[in-house]
Design a protein around this nucleic acid. Structure first.
Lengths: 89, 89
DNA sequence: AATAAATATAGCACAAGTGCTATATTTATT
DNA sequence: AATAAATATAGCACTTGTGCTATATTTATT
């Protein structure tokens, strides 16, 4: 039984930011009149991936986000039009 | 000798978008007066990662980008204030 | 209520992002 | 030109994003 060895390197998963993005994306997707599966099909992303993103279960890459923006036909600045809580020093 | 088996699943690496982001990030980092290593240190990201991003060698995740925005103290809409070439149908 | 459509979950395999460390290369300074 | 500072590369190990497939759950429609 190997004792769940905890690595010391810290990977960042920005839960707050990922959640904010999820909510914002869903809002825009609906605003633009897409279902998850339409968005998946037209963007070339998998449906499971769209769902994972909107439920904030993963931390998508820029390429993925760019594909979403292109398909939804919105500006990146629109897709990122939400506030991130500032870093505490 | 295993014949370099080519997978059929298509992963997207949006070279054009990644390059545009790289250029834009570098511009903003300099504008805000940060060196790569300062940005790395303050954001908690590794220096190699910052370099990889600015040379468009990788496809960063949102959490990484959020960390950059927070440290540089800029809005996401600022960090994403560049154009993505539209998708051809 | 029954059916269909849309979303959410799950698990596997593979590709790739990231930290870490070290070194090379380029650019700025004296 | 010599030195220092900044940036770019490289390789390894680990973690995780993603596609794919299948199923469950929730929401909309008749």
């Amino acid at each position: 039984m190997k004792p769940q060895q905890q690595s010391d390197r810290k990977l960042i998963f920005d839960d707050e930011g990922i959640k904010a993005f999820a909510i914002h994306l869903k809002k825009i997707r609906i605003r633009e009149g897409y279902s998850q599966s339409q968005l998946a099909f037209e963007s070339g992303l998998s449906l499971s991936q769209i769902a994972r993103i909107e439920t904030a279960r993963i931390n998508p890459t820029l390429s993925t986000v760019f594909a979403l923006a292109r398909t939804l036909n919105v500006q990146l600045s629109d897709l990122f039009d939400f506030e991130l809580s500032p870093k505490e020093k």
